[in-house]
Design a protein around this nucleic acid. Structure first.
Lengths: 214, 214
DNA sequence: AAAATAATTTAGACAAGTCTAAATTATTAA
DNA sequence: TTAATAATTTAGACTTGTCTAAATTATTTT
């Protein structure tokens, strides 16, 4: 039905869509997939033919409900495989992304269903991202960006938005992994920095937009 | 390094090679992969360039040690995934082949290694086929074709050569699964048939070449 | 051993996905 | 609101893997 390439485009468009109402720009998709704008234009035409996106030339695309469903099914598979790779095969959290990127394209709903059951119907992946359900619904469970917290107090690190191995390794070295409890002890409006304490260790200054928390 | 298509060609050539010394014919490969002879010729040239096969035009191909290693690594992955699908995800033995056919192309030796460990280093897949080791060695453990047995007596069904879902379902309905003990009670040289008894049920006449046994 | 048949290869074309360079359209600046 | 710049699309080409039809080589038959 959909090729691996189409699936990757839909995933990218979906991710670029979430949290902003506007159309997704050709150049943004090209950047996200490390390909040329010309290639993106070609593929967008194809996806538009299949009613996966709404396309108006020179004005980017909007993903349709149909396209979104495909994207969410791939994202569901991706995150379930990540759980499998960490929980079952004991990979580290900075190693699972690239493998899941391949496994997500194995096209069997029955496989996804059984994997889900085997893993105990997990609701979040190892990076704290919610796993969409079979109907393409996402339950985000009150997570909030660290950069958007306005009150001091205790929080739990539930996940991160940056999945790059280097960032994940950095966090792990600091002792910050999903589930870590930390306290915001000081917030400075001048430069949007905050001081946090965690793991009974010394305070550490972290840049904003570090993590999703609740 | 190798594409999915190249891997599938090498697998087919390897399977057609085992147990016969000769070159593998273009038409045999075409038949096995349900493609045209013209396509096979094209791909063979490519594999020959990469020293995966030795090619003499109009006279078929022989797989090289290099090509064989690639084939065996894919077959190893295939069979490990089959074990995973049956043992861990509880698929039935006639459902695992097609899924494993997709999973085998996920290219990570580390993944294969960890999957192997998780499954407890299995030596055979659910159809009784031996799982090649990391070095590309196959330990076949004294299995023998049912059609080549000459003595009456008790045997264990260790596997089958025909992996088609319909045949596997037929066997399962009869109660013949890997591990089943059966006795050959009569052999008829006239038509190469044999009478076997298994599972405390009534005798059943089975065609030759049904299964590998030891 | 020549003729007929079967198998294989070549030639030319196609689809998917990609690229660069040129042309077009939007946006920003003056 | 025209000029300059930036983004997007089109045009044409390339790669991988495939196909059909025609040409070539092997094999079998007589």
């Amino acid at each position: 039905m959909t090729t691996t390439t189409e699936e990757n485009y839909l995933k990218a468009i979906y991710h670029l869509s979430t949290g902003n109402q506007d159309s997704v720009l050709t150049s943004a998709i090209a950047g996200s997939l490390s390909t040329s704008s010309a290639s993106v234009t070609d593929m967008i035409k194809k996806l538009s033919e299949k009613n996966m996106v709404e396309y108006e030339r020179y004005h980017g695309v909007k993903i349709t409900r149909k396209g979104e469903k495909v994207a969410l099914s791939i994202i569901r598979r991706h995150r379930l495989w990540e759980v499998f790779l960490m929980d079952t095969l004991k990979f580290k959290w900075d190693e699972v992304h690239d493998l899941a990127e391949e496994l997500e394209h194995v096209s069997s709903d029955e496989l996804t269903k059984r994997l889900d059951a085997f893993l105990g119907f997990p609701k979040f992946d190892p990076h704290g991202d919610p796993i969409p359900d079979t109907n393409g619904k996402v339950h985000s469970n009150g997570q909030v960006l660290l950069s958007e917290i306005t009150k001091k107090g205790k929080y739990i690190l539930s996940g991160v938005n940056d999945h790059s191995p280097s960032f994940l390794q950095y966090l792990e070295k600091k002792g910050l992994i999903p589930g870590s409890i930390f306290s915001i002890v000081e917030m400075d409006e001048f430069d949007n920095s905050m001081q946090i304490i965690f793991s009974n260790k010394s305070p550490s200054l972290l840049a904003k937009k570090l993590a999703k928390t609740f």
